[in-house]
Nucleic acid binder design. Sequence first.
DNA 1: ACAATTTATTTCGACACTTAAAATAATCTT
DNA 2: AAGATTATTTTAAGTGTCGAAATAAATTGT
Lengths: 407, 407
Amino acid sequence: MMNKADSDLIRRQNRHLVLEALRFAGRAPRVELGRLTGLSLATITSITAQLLNEGLLLEDNTVAPITTRRGRPSVDLSLNPSATHVIVLKISIGKFEMVLADYAGTRVAHQIKTVATYDMKIHDVGKKAASLILAFLSEHNKSPADVRIIGIAAQGAAETGVGHLMWSPAFKEVNIPLTEPISRLTGIYCRLSNDANMIAEGLMAREHYLYKGTAAVIFMGYGVGMGLVIDGKTYHGSTGAAAEFGHMNHIPHGAMCRCGMSGCIEAYASDYGILRTAQGLPVNTPPPLDAVEPEVMMALETSARQGDGAALGAYVKAGEAIGFGLARMIALLSPDRIIISGPGIRAFDLAEPAIAASIDEGVVTALRQNVKLEKLPMDHDMIITGTIDKLLHDLDREVFARAEPAA
Amino acid sequence: MMNKADSDLIRRQNRHLVLEALRFAGRAPRVELGRLTGLSLATITSITAQLLNEGLLLEDNTVAPITTRRGRPSVDLSLNPSATHVIVLKISIGKFEMVLADYAGTRVAHQIKTVATYDMKIHDVGKKAASLILAFLSEHNKSPADVRIIGIAAQGAAETGVGHLMWSPAFKEVNIPLTEPISRLTGIYCRLSNDANMIAEGLMAREHYLYKGTAAVIFMGYGVGMGLVIDGKTYHGSTGAAAEFGHMNHIPHGAMCRCGMSGCIEAYASDYGILRTAQGLPVNTPPPLDAVEPEVMMALETSARQGDGAALGAYVKAGEAIGFGLARMIALLSPDRIIISGPGIRAFDLAEPAIAASIDEGVVTALRQNVKLEKLPMDHDMIITGTIDKLLHDLDREVFARAEPAA
DNA sequence: ACAATTTATTTCGACACTTAAAATAATCTT
DNA sequence: AAGATTATTTTAAGTGTCGAAATAAATTGT
């Protein structure tokens, strides 16, 4: 069903609208907010007065009005950066990266810690993360009370629901509990997401008008990941670990994958898969435990460009795996856009013809023709940017859209 | 973004809630509606008075209260059957089936017309359907003004957005416009959907508490179809022709499919695909144009049960195609439930071991373990039931939730 | 310098909706 | 027939949005 509606709901939704408009615009006078939200100026006055009173907004006239128009000058409102803060913890192979951002989305601190992730014991991961976060905070003279939420973006299959990391290239262990211990040890509410989903989230925050429908962000690199946006919302399956594009089967009984199965797309299109093919190793050669060094992949790319047949062939095999995977996804979901990114995007041109041919081969024209396929240069930072955006949007919707009970 | 909220929105949502509760309960007194919706009795009085006044509800005390409790007896309310009507047109190979149902969901008329669908010219389909509908109505002393919406459930790929049938086993032609001509010629608003989606819709209306998340209804028969429910709503892709599970590639460069591509799941798991395998015909044998007679499939099933190796092998091949397709879908979407239905369900036991083995082979345990796989006996009527449910729900939400402007 | 003009914001009065509490209705019990 | 009990309606208060009117704060013109 739905929930019943009352005047609380109206206020909540309209407050949310105002916050969203301001986050989109950065700064705007009340008239502008009226235009953006469709609300009357009277309502805008009422809502912004409340938000100012609660310390979420700031009257911001630091920038002198450039225009020399007649009439009462407008006074810009903006989100109050110090209303609260969020922390992003990005977990990847061998390192923990932390970013502290204020309520306006500006990054105020940044730290990268080298951590020997692979051999960590299952319960040390959360403990280590929590202690790094607490140290990071006190280094910047902040207390846990200043931070409203921690968002973890991790490589691998993340169960957002329970906050476990089902598996990840960064760890030998599986089913690592993250949100619970980190929440408990820091006293800060904590959420876990998959890194590719966070890229999708970041793109949406930037060009949300483009994401009315369904879009998939494919992420090629050490593994093959995907962020899936359905009807404008990132999709998590029943467990929160959906959209495992990399571990969608490509060839029954095919090449050995890091996940223990055979024939996954990743076994052909990830760094290690491409390398294995290029080296002519049998498809059941176990994948290496550590990430393939970028230099190795760059060398492979170079020799492919110089005409090395084995290297070229490996990129074609990778393209076929990606292409048929996309064809299957298109048959199933018919997305509006597919965006391919990740470190592997460097060599995209080598795989692209095979990708295109495989899509043609794998799905009828009628379904394919409406899909836009784009590539996006990799930006590691986008994972963090996307996570910040998502955390702040979540806070706006779930926390700050609710009016504080009057004193 | 969202839309702004005002008091209209509240009323709309709460009216919708009352209508939904009454559709769910069939008949209920006001106190009961209060409990079901969470609204106060004062509000229920106000809303039901309005709905009674608009003719959508009926005070219904035809059934004498069985209970002999003390206190003022309650008076049941129910949906007014004659408030409006809906028509379902089910299009399948060789026949058009029409059902007229009242606002309470009761069927009041039913007609099956044999139509030589396959060779119809592209613009004759809509004309034929419209004239049959008009004749059907006048036969039952109804005028188009008594009907608020026509819902078409068609086999094949339906573009709900534009109302075209992209392709269908029933027609030689492709891209057949349906909603526009039928709407124009009958004067009744018209919508097109895929038949498997309507089964999913019917299941949801009956057990909507089971469909909070993601569920897929696979439909095996002449073709292989799918209805996909994501977050409790049937999913249509960018064009409205998503969820073409049957035409998701199974084996690159594989068996020839009716859609013109090679290696689709349907090419192995549909009636004609199974038959082709059993007969030992080469995989590039073109599929027959007409539906395979049920008797032929039943004979095949019988010989498989009697130990015919070729027949058994064909069901195994079909099971592999379905199983790997499901494995791929699970990797991508991690649904809560998968339901397999359709006429092909009769021989499900012959394919089931192969389905299970292929799912095991094709997707890691961690993703698979949360998925419930069920089979559902085929009921052709469920397509019609589901369409009626969906039409009425759509009307409740889009039309009747809005209060009529006061006279 | 100051009135007129222009643009932004706030205030006011009307209206819609929900709700709790009080009032009313319609039955059964004793 | 009075009292008890359950269902429904009415009433009064509270919250929210909106259009119109009022107010604020600038520029322009003289």
